[in-house]
Design a protein around this nucleic acid. Structure first.
Lengths: 222, 222
DNA sequence: CTACAATCGGAAGCATGGTTCCGCTTCGGC
DNA sequence: GCCGAAGCGGAACCATGCTTCCGATTGTAG
């Protein structure tokens, strides 16, 4: 708006140091949010980046925007891992590999775990990413199911929910005890096997349904 | 202090309406914290109780104190359930019954779930309670283990961690879908059975160890 | 080298939510 | 009924943490 001609025709070449600072802020934010979760304060990010708060807020006009930027980059890197797993020949191994990677990722990136567990705080930009990730997970799950290491009566979103539970539960005690985390991941993998498979209430949950449920909840809260 | 003679010899008989108000506040707090978690605001508690904030703060000088009072009463009521389960003849059934009750309890009392998951926020008054509860859980677990429905390589605190994970994971989506919660509880029960029992890293975790780990974490954070 | 505009730092501003205080009301013994 | 004190409500106060603003600084085109 307001005489916008220049604003949107010229891609405005940023000053070099400004670009460098932006990167620093992003890196600091990633580190800080990973350690302390989304409740970490903007000042701390600024301090860690070695800049003033003003600089943080100029690049990311709001804390929310900063969070979105960080989360987006986390989504990218997790998607990489999912795709890395997908190229494995053995679908059972692929699933297990991804699940371990996921839990380790959540342990390392607390902010990501919170995002995955709570109401989505994602910009529209990231929707494509999220879809790619959910579809990759769905493929990993069905692969493991046809390989016979995962029972048939669960859906991809069931897996996401279960492991985000593990992430949260071990966040309390587990940061210092990575073994503990793997312990619970393996236990849940055991629960996912077809062998025992007692009757579960409900039906396999996919991501579309999960989103519906979350939306319903949001609507109710409002 | 300050001419304390009267203060501690006379048990100062509270006025009737004051006592009634205190109860109202406590009830309102329990309801509000259960629905919204510990982040719920004091004003909301006051409104729900039909009193002014001043009244809340006179009875519970700080939000923390209010939380402690509410949590203590929740501990009592959960302990009841654990003891109810313990009198069941079949230890396998007792364990399952308690675990379902626990997850339902956590779903209904969000504040309690948060407390159980995060750093302890308990007054010393509640330590005896907590010990009673952990010992009841320990008995339920070992009972189920000798009955053969729970694998030997897990400890009581493992169970607590796993189910607090479920509580958290389903808090997002599960409030509206109680079936979903039971779904995951049953799945974890499957994982806990001796049948499949793949090798788990780490050792069975008991509550004393868990407390150590949490303390270590607290110390580090400071 | 100079000048100008982009960028910076961090102090001041604002919003949110807990805690305190005080004039008014109500209880309950007489 | 009357009166002193306990209790009440909620506005004012304070702490915390995000956002804005502006004088000082620094990069860069000419």
């Amino acid at each position: 708006m307001t005489r916008g001609a220049i604003t949107h025709t010229v891609p405005r070449p940023q000053r070099a140091d400004a670009r460098r600072n932006r990167e620093r802020v992003l890196a600091a934010a990633e580190a800080v949010f990973s350690e302390a979760g989304l409740k970490a304060q903007v000042d701390e990010v600024a301090r860690r980046a070695g800049v003033g708060v003003g600089t943080v807020c100029r690049n990311f006009p709001t804390k929310q925007a900063l969070i979105e930027a960080v989360l987006t980059s986390m989504y990218v890197s997790l998607l990489d891992q999912a795709e890395a797993a997908l190229v494995t020949a053995d679908p059972a191994a692929a699933f297990e590999q991804f699940v371990l990677a996921l839990s380790e990722f959540q342990a390392r990136h607390r902010a990501f775990a919170e995002q995955m567990a709570n109401e989505p705080v994602l910009p529209e930009t990231a929707h494509a990413l999220r879809d790619a990730l959910t579809s990759a997970i769905a493929r990993l799950v069905t692969g493991a199911q046809s390989a016979g290491t995962v029972r048939a009566d669960i859906g991809p979103a069931d897996v996401a929910i279960l492991f985000s539970g593990v992430a949260h539960a071990t966040a309390v005690a587990g940061d210092l005890q990575p073994a503990l985390r793997e312990r619970y991941v393996r236990l849940i993998l055991d629960g996912l096997r077809p062998a025992v498979a007692s009757q579960l209430p409900g039906a396999p949950l996919d991501f579309a349904q999960l989103r519906c449920i979350k939306n319903a909840k949001l609507r109710k809260a409002r």
